[in-house]
Amino acid sequence: MSAVTDARVTTPADARKAGNWLLTATAIVLSVWVLLPIYLLIVNALSSPGEVTAFPKRFLPSFDLGSLSFFINFAGVARALWNSVLVATLTMILAIGFGAPAGYALSRFDFPGKGTFRFLVLMTRAFPLPLLALPLAVMFIRTGLDDTAIGLALVHTTLALPFAVLITFSLFSGIPVELEEAAWTLGCTRWQAFRKVILPLALPGIAASAVFAFTISWNEVFAAAVLTIENRTLTAFLLQSLGESPLYLKFAGGAALVVPALIFIFAVRKYLFAMWGIANR
């Protein structure tokens, strides 16, 4: 026995072990690649304005809230933050309100025109949608929607709606039709069956797709910059002040954009597949 071990034969177990090490190492390297840049931004955001512009840099934050308080108190920032939240919330409501019924219809019915609708939804993904803000800007001026939260939310809904449709479609498809049918045979109307059986089961997923819609709007830059002037969202505000604002303002603003995004993605992490798994079809 010992003679064999001494000969250092590479057994499959050894190879597997080496493979596992390599796998873990790769995972760590890739994680560092993703996390390190975010960490560096946070270091900047948590340093005083003086430290941010100083050279050389420290790689640890000083936990000075100078940059952040400067950012918060900077003229227009509080309003921009509020606008971002408002637009994103409206987008979320519109996208789910329009998207979920469509997702339900696609998952439960076979009807003429179904293919056309799916094509329409999928087609939106082949287009650089923010560009559509350009013609809409004119339309909005005519209808009084220019520079309003609802106007921008409508454009953001175009971005978020296809996702809402696809995600809710996959959610509802994942709930067996039999559950609904069982509810019907047990005395439910269609609406009662939906409310008592389907909705409770789909709710976490619907919430996740709502968060996803919120994130899409929260992050969108181009349409926001095109469509808002007075009522800028945070992204539009940061974009338009890129030229003149000091570094520490940019970094604090960047952190203000990133931190909620981290939370959003954490909240929807279980549903990332639902969002894209179905999109393969």
């Binding site: 993703v34 975010i38 570094l247 995004a261 981290l262 990332l272």
Partner: peptide, 16 residues
């Protein structure tokens, strides 16, 4: 994570 980060924020991150 980067899925949830806006392109503007990503630009600012790499600006740092």
């Amino acid at each position: 994570i980067p899925l949830g980060i806006s392109d503007l924020a990503a630009g600012l991150i790499w600006l740092a």
